[in-house]
Design a protein around this nucleic acid. Structure first.
Length: 171
DNA sequence: TTAGTGATATCC
DNA sequence: GATATCACTAAA
């Protein structure tokens, strides 16, 4: 098997390019006891810039949205509804807030269940996925077909932004 | 359909 | 300091 890991150039592109390319890749988390949890990504969503009303950076740079402005490969994890951890990977240029939400995996088809299984929480917020020895993306060469849909759970963002087909789903 | 849950942003 | 909001899930 020919395993590769996406490098800095992979993430250093627009989120609209990176999001579909993450489909089919495998997210791996190695626990302190050596156990490796892995899950193939089946769904992603792009959040792009301060003008994207659905993006956490739409209200400017805050303590929470800070990570969106960091260099590509930075991991952005935040707590939603008091219970659920959401994991994003930052893409594109620094200072241009954008990222890709890991929305679902093969076994755990929702963002919160995925992070729960992989045991990803705020301790990873702000770390770089290219530099953390215990968390990485693997490419086993499988190419998947996908289609796009509207993003979910962002009714507050207004018609222009909530109707964008910025969600990628594996077929 | 609705409760659960708590950090964050925004308003006094 | 107080309140409203929220990129969700599970149970009913």
């Amino acid at each position: 098997m020919n395993l590769q890991r996406p490098d800095a150039d992979f993430y250093h592109r627009d989120c609209l390019i990176v999001a579909p390319e993450l489909i089919g890749k495998i997210l791996v988390h190695r626990l302190p006891d050596g156990t490796e949890l892995r899950e193939r990504i089946t769904q992603t969503e792009a959040y792009r810039g301060e003008e994207d009303k659905a993006c956490h950076a739409s209200r400017g740079r805050t303590k929470r949205s800070e990570m969106l402005y960091h260099e590509s490969g930075t991991i952005y994890v935040y707590l939603c509804y008091g219970i659920h951890w959401m994991m994003n990977i930052i893409t594109g240029e620094p200072e241009q807030p954008q990222g890709v939400l890991i929305r679902a995996g093969e076994i755990h088809p929702s963002p919160a269940r995925l992070t729960k299984y992989l045991q990803i929480d705020k301790t990873y917020n702000g770390q770089n996925i290219l530099q953390n020895p215990d968390l990485w993306i693997e490419d086993d060469g499988i190419v998947c077909n996908w289609h796009t849909e509207k993003r979910v759970g962002i009714d507050y963002a207004g018609d222009e932004w909530k109707n964008k087909y910025w969600r990628w789903v594996m077929d």
